[in-house]
Design a protein around this nucleic acid. Structure first.
Lengths: 231, 231
DNA sequence: AGATATATTCAACGTTCGTTGAACGCGCGA
DNA sequence: TCGCGCGTTCAACGAACGTTGAATATATCT
């Protein structure tokens, strides 16, 4: 008999029939890769780390995803699509609520940060990891900008347009820099490094979704408006 | 004769006498490590990458810095001390300018971001790399928070105090979250990933120090004030 | 049941990793 | 001038790396 896979991490039910496409080993590889990449970065994780955590042979990762980078891209793509759909829905809802007016700056920001913060605070550790991963990529100089652009900026452009309509007096450069500030604050929040806990001696807690949601839209709406004022 | 070190990167002047302690190979190792760590992260760079770039043998890195992590820490510490001193000086200058009043929120923010943005835009590639490195560490979940706290937060606390004095009505949690937002925006700026260039089709440029300095203090001062308003 | 396709493991490849002990060169104080 | 200490190179260790071709197990189809 097969005596490999000594410490199988899987909850694999042996009797259940399964079609080829719904392999749960593949899903487990994605989950473990997500967790490990988020914690240690792309180069800080080996393919063997991932396959060991998933309880499968190292060759299986290459069978499903090709090279190591393919595995990373698959991880990054999986939830990006969900997040983009969430955001577009939230933007449309904000537009519907405000009709026949355009939604306010604060409402647009809420539609932008709300979906990701909700997933982040949902209790699903997969989403927590994914958010931390995005934060790291967004601050990676060599290939982070291009990666973020590719996966997220088509939707981001829609939000930029909505912000532009809400702030007709804001210069174009101001608009993009303001979004840039928002993006940096959001990703640092999602990184959840624990620094704010230490700095504030516990007054503010890294994972406090409600605290962020209560402050971020108002804080950044004020910033956008401040740059729009010409004085 | 020695035929190693084929492509020596050094501008080593052969005639100059030098005491043991001012070895420029050591300095070159720090410079190259800084550049490479900033670009690819800690795990994305091998000790051999660094020594090859510095034009020295791989064993020399271990002689000067012990393990790989020692090299990284030496890189991180070198400019942290300079930056902290810069910031304290700027804070004192702001206080002196405002005396006998307390400096405004916008002035304190200026004293916080001004020194690092000035170094960042100074044209010294070493400082550019260092800033990108800090950005990456600040967004690293596993050990980033602790590292930032250790090297920077003693000085940050002084700025927090100054902000507290400028905004007596701001609740403590609001104060720390506001700083957190500022920190995220600043580090994403320093990361200089080029994403904003792509997103704005060139209207905003990643490395544009003047653009950031002209917007950041006003933008974030407005954010701080917005959370202080109780409505 | 037998054939077929997909999923997974086995075993190994060549390379590169971080690290180390010993030797070497050389300026400087005795 | 001798030797001593520091900076540096040499040569190599064992381990771990990403990747691969072939063998094996499992599920589906005829």
């Amino acid at each position: 008999m097969n005596e490999g896979a000594v410490k199988s991490a899987g909850a694999r039910r042996p009797g259940r029939p399964r079609t080829a496409s719904e392999s749960d080993a593949r899903e487990r590889l994605l989950d473990e890769a997500e967790r490990l990449f988020a914690e240690h970065g792309f180069y800080g994780v080996t393919v063997r780390d991932v396959t060991r955590a998933a309880g499968v042979d190292v060759a299986l990762a290459h069978y499903h995803f090709g090279a190591k980078r393919g595995l990373f891209d698959a991880v990054f793509l999986r939830r990006a699509e969900i997040l983009n759909a969430d955001r577009l829905l939230a933007l449309e809802a904000a537009r519907a609520d405000a009709a026949p007016d355009e939604p306010t700056v604060e409402t647009v920001i809420q539609a932008f940060v709300g979906p990701v913060l909700a997933r982040w605070a949902s209790g699903d550790p997969g989403w927590k990891s994914y958010c931390a991963l995005v934060a790291q990529v967004n601050n990676t100089p060599s290939w982070g900008g291009k990666t973020m652009t590719r996966y997220f900026d088509p939707v981001v452009q829609r939000f930029i347009n909505a912000l532009r309509q809400a702030l007709p007096d804001l210069a174009e450069a101001d608009l993009f820099w303001s979004y840039h500030f928002l993006s940096g604050a959001l990703t640092l929040t999602l990184a959840e490094t624990g620094r704010i806990d230490l700095l504030s001696a516990g007054v503010a807690r890294s994972g406090d979704h409600d605290a962020v949601m209560a402050r971020m839209p108002r804080f950044f709406a004020a910033g956008f408006h401040a740059l729009a004022r010409k004085d």
